[in-house]
Every structure is written in structure tokens, then in C-alpha cells.
Design a protein around this nucleic acid. Sequence first.
DNA 1: GCCGTTTTCGGCCCGACTGTTTTCAGTCG
Length: 573
Amino acid sequence: MKNTELGQVFASIADLMEILGADPFRINSYRKAGRAVVDLAEPIEDVTAAGELQKIPGIGKSTGAKIDEYLKTGKVAAHQELLGKVPPKLPEMLAVPGLGPKTVAKIWKEAKITSLGELEDAIESGAASLAEVPGFGPKRMRQIWESINFMKSVGGRMRLGEARQLADELTAFVSKIPGAKKVAAAGSLRRGKETIGDIDLLCQATKAAAPKIIERFTKSPGVQRVLAAGGTKGSVVLDREVQADLRVVPAASYGAALAYFTGSKEHNVRLRELAVKAGMKLNEYGLFKGDRRVAGKDEPGIYKALGLQFVPPELREDRGEVQAARAGKLPDLLELEDIRGDLHVHTDWSDGVETIEAMAAAAQKRGYAYLAICDHSKSQIQANGLDEKRLAEQVQAIRKLAKTLKGFTLLAGVEVDVFKDGRLDFEADVLAELDFVVASAHTALSLGAKEATRRLIRAIEHPRVRCIGHPSGRIINGRPGMELDIEPVARAAAANGVALEINSHYYRLDLRDVHVRAAIEAGARIVINTDAHRAEELGMMRFGVLTARRGWATAADVINTCSVGALRKWLAA
DNA sequence: GCCGTTTTCGGCCCGACTGTTTTCAGTCG
């Protein structure tokens, strides 16, 4: 599956063209094509073989031919040609915040600097060649120097759960600044993306109060460096090497600013295109017809004025949501409140830290109707996995407790290991004693698409398996996991009455958003579990639900929105 | 280079902030 590789080729083409000063619209086309390929759930090889490349929005004749060429030869001639025109390490400079293509081209051509390392050396030694480049005053030099250091210290994007906590703290702080009315986190955090680049905060206040609020924000605890501080916008780097931006807007513009700041950029571009076609203009202050503001104080008003259904933040990725909203065909997305239970949690019988009783009590406290205890199987030795004997004992303990619980259903399950070849860690007769069987791969997670798909399908076809846990096995910012060809996996799941899990832990979020959508389209049911190893981790459900919403899931697509009766019926089927 | 409920050609989103090239280009989101 070469989707990611191809995405990188297109991104590289775009970077090189930018440095060389090509037409910005053509550059944008390559960026779009790259994103389209990466977002695709199916292997690009299959789409190519089916002759359907140009059906992908953003892929046309030229980019389609380049995909074909790459799959046949492993290279794109036009890309190679561009690479020959630019020093090989020059594009890495584009990753430095504040360094764009124009500047990179200038320091290459005028100061003969060809890599990030050389740039650092030149700044450090105060090289005359660099100081003579027009636009390189002492402040700019210092800014770039700090940016390079910032870049080195940041380990990429934060995970969703980490960003959520940081944003909550910042929001609480800004809310207390005098004059601040509403404060909300926007950006990719509000869209529920699996990783977050920086924290975007929005604040409602009068124009008069805005500069003071920005000033206070730049002096809030944990601020290490101020990147920008104007009359309505401030930008800081926090101690945790995270950038946070605050924008202050008046009430009449709050909704427009929230939409603008929530993004995605690509979604916003779509909205503005629609506005222009309707003879209007959309910016962060509102939707305008001439000088008259027709919408802006809240988000729904803007979508309505553009002739669209309200688009929930999680869908704003330019993946067809604007077209669907125009046709009135957006899905009625699942809500956190729809979740009636959790079907994959651990206890101190394996590597969890709490008792069966404690987990059941915590689930009841959350208002759930059911919970399935699914501890590890015997091959998970480091996790104190259960062998046949201990599993039988645990089932007894669960059944005994279950009888004492009023209005709450406690199910006996297991998370059985799926071996490399798709066989399971327990025999079928052992699994037959359980109410619910989650099958998960924990080892050999670097399998390619073909083997991984075969492995999971074999597990799916096992008569006792009802759920595939964290299907790819990826760890966000940790390991990529198995390459999944989601369509055949989802079709097999649908045919065998097996649900595919969205593991809600923010380290996993697996299935990922685009796979969720493809799985549902292929007819599969989803189950959203927390895989909690302690009671408070049941709260991770919110991240799983966000991921499901990003995958266009409705409550009907998700097994654990069912009543106990419906769940039992599904289990008996 | 892509795309079409006005178009197969001619468009293609919008504004804040910074540093410095004294009137704006570059970058970012």
C-alpha cells in the first residue's frame, strides 16, 4: 500500500516548486492531490488497477498519470527533475516556522546556504554572507534562530488527550481575565483530530478590551516566549514547547471567528468559494453582502446563510461534507450520550489495576447499561494473561457478581490474542463459554497490507469472535501498526457479524477516522470501547466518539448504542 | 493542475502580524 509514499512525493513536488517560484495554483493542486491520496482508505494500487484514479477529487489527468508512473517504476520523472534543480537538503528548511519558500530560495541563492545545518552555522558565526541578504536584520536572524531551536525541541504533534487537557487549563485561565466573555478552544482540537499541532483559543470581548486580554494572555503562567502580540491576536510558546494562539473578537463576529479558527483550512476555503459564488464574502468577522453582515454571531447562522446544513466540526475536513450539506445529506452523527456500555475493559485479573467489582461500579456510575470484562489471554505473559483455568475462574466470578447487579448487565468476555497467521490463543470450546470475544493482534504488527488483511479476516471468520480490537495496532506518535486494507476486512466483518473496534485511548484511536468511514460504507458495524485498565479510563470514550464522528458514524452504525435487549439479540445471532 | 447547478476556459479565499526593502512582501492559519 503506497498511499503514504505517494503523498510524500506530491508534497515534495509542491515544496520544490514553491522554492523554484512556480505558479501557486499548480502548487496547491499537488498539495491537494497528496492529501487526497493519503486520506484514501483503499490502497492506491487497487484504485489505479480499477482505472478509477480520476474519480478521486483532486486527482486529474496529470497527477493521475504520475501515480500510475510511480506504481510502475517507483519514481516520478517530473519529481526527479525538480530534485535535480535544488540542493537535496534545502527543502528541510521549510519546516522551520517563519521560513517560507521565498526566504529559503533567497538564502540559497544569495548566501549559498543549502541545508538547515549550514543555516544554523551561519547564524551562529554571524556570517556576513547571510547578514547581507536583504531582509535579514538582527531581529529576523534571532527569530529564525529561536524557531530552529523550537523545532528541535518539539516532538511533533500532541496527542488528542494531551492537547485537550492543556487547552482546558488555558481556557480556564483566559476565562478569568477581566473583559473576557466566552472562551473556547477551536482548531484541530475541536475537530477531534488524533494529533494537534497547536492550541487555538477564541475569546469574545469588546474591541476596547481586546488588547488588554492579549497582553494578559502573553503573560499567563507557562509562557516561555511571545511570538506575536497585536490588538486582536496573540501567539505564545508554552513551557511544554507547545504553541498557543489566542484571537479576541466582538460578539457579532464570534460565530464567524469560531468557524474560521476551527478550520480546517480546506473546509474554510470551500465555504468562502460558496460565499463568493453567492455574491458574498466570508471572513473571520462574518458573512457579508456588500457592507452588510448577514451572519456571524453564531456558526449555524453562517451555514444557513450559505444554504448549507450545519456541518459538525468533526466533519470539516473537505472530505465531501460541503457537498453533502448542500444536498441536505449529512449523517445524523452519533453523540457521546448515545453510548450505553463498554465492551472491552481490563481488571486486575490481567494487567488492569482494579477489581471486576470496581470496574462494574464505575460503569454503572457513568450511567451505562452494560459492561464486558475482557482480560488478556495466555500468550500475553507480560500482561499476566489468563490461561484456560484462570479464565474459567474469572467467568465464574463475573457471573456471580452479575447476579447481584440490578438493572445492569455484566458480560464475561476475553481479549484473545490473534497470532501472526490469524489463529487464536484459545480453542473454540474455551471461547464458547464466554458472552463476548474481542480478538486483538499484539505482536507482529509490522505486517504489510496483504498479510495483515489475511490475518484479520481469518480471525473474523472464527465463529466465536464478535469484535476485532484495535485493528491496526498502531500507537500514535509511537508505531505505525499494520497496514490495513480496510474494505475487504470490513466486508468480512459485515458478513460474519463481527464489529470492528474503535479503541478510544488517545494513544490508539484505532480504527482511525478514514477507516471508520470506509468500514461503515462497506457495511460493517462499529463498537467503541475504551480498553480501560483503570476506572477513570472509561472516560476516554469521548475520544472514541469523536473519532467515530470523524468517520461519519451514526448511532445505528455503533453496536454499543443498543439497549441490552438488542445487544443480546445481536450476540445470539 | 483541477474543476464546472452560470463555465471545457478562466478562475482558483481572506486577513493579522512582523520586520524592514519607507509602502509592503512574506508567512501563517
